[in-house]
Amino acid sequence: MFVSFWNKLSINQKLAITAWLFLAVPIVFYVCIRFYPTFEAFYVSTLKWNLLGAKKYIGLRNYEKIFADEDFWLVLLNTFKYAGLGVPISLFIAFCVAYFLNEITRWHDFIRALYFIPFLTTAVAMAWVWKWFYQPLPIGYFNFFLNYLGIAQQPFLKSVTQGLYAIMAPAVWAGLGFQVVIFIAGIRAIPRSYYEAAEIDGAGRWQILREITLPSLKPTVIFLTVVSTIGFLRIFDQVYSMTTNGDGGPLNTTKPIVLMIYEFAFDEFKIGRASALTVILFVILLVISMFQLWLMRKKP
């Protein structure tokens, strides 16, 4: 029966069915593993639930508690600091590296690979190495160099003012490889003829960079901004690995929103409140992504 049905179909219908058959696998997977839990989180966020006991509907109480918690506002500010500073800094460095790397041909591949290695390294392993770099004397490299130069030791991770930046540095470094590779691809995709025309017109290096390279890279920049903004807003591994007991300290000054979610869920078993915070993060990510996509909508 099936065979006769199949034989009656046109080539196009057969192609469509085959395509959907293959697509069904990831669709089912995503619906079950990603989308269903995502929507479930909205429901759980209205519950008081400790993972095992009875679920109690409490309306928006979880949200009220979160907004009334001054730690939440500090954590939100931290999260925006990670993204607001981490994204421009990493894009600027990545562009500079990509720009100059593109100029050289000797060892180009080797250097590019060097930049890419941190991206492949486990964040936790890297965070631990950096944690040791930041140690006070007699262990830490950074303080060893500062001391060698006659500069006073710095507390780095043990400071309420330096901690966040000390954690941001390895996060920027880790993402650099990916950004450099995308930038190089972007730069290479710009038609040579633009540059040739500009050179004939007598444009200088700086002018070419400003008038041709940067505007042509706009889609690349926006893509990287979206991707790395989301990445920084979700920062977790580095903070969890580099702070004492993974507490986002000292005094919550390095704690990002994801770590707070984790603590609610798995240290205090407040699944409802953790879900509420997840929904808040979801909304933030959604708004920021939509805004960035709206920027991209305009053609360069």
């Binding site: 309420v160 300290g249 005094l251």
Partner: peptide, 20 residues
């Protein structure tokens, strides 16, 4: 009652004095 936040309270008090 809940060990982690209770431990954190004392750690935070010490940090406030020594860091702030």
């Amino acid at each position: 009652k809940s060990e982690k936040p209770q431990r954190q309270a004392i750690i935070d008090a010490i940090d406030m004095v020594t860091l702030q």
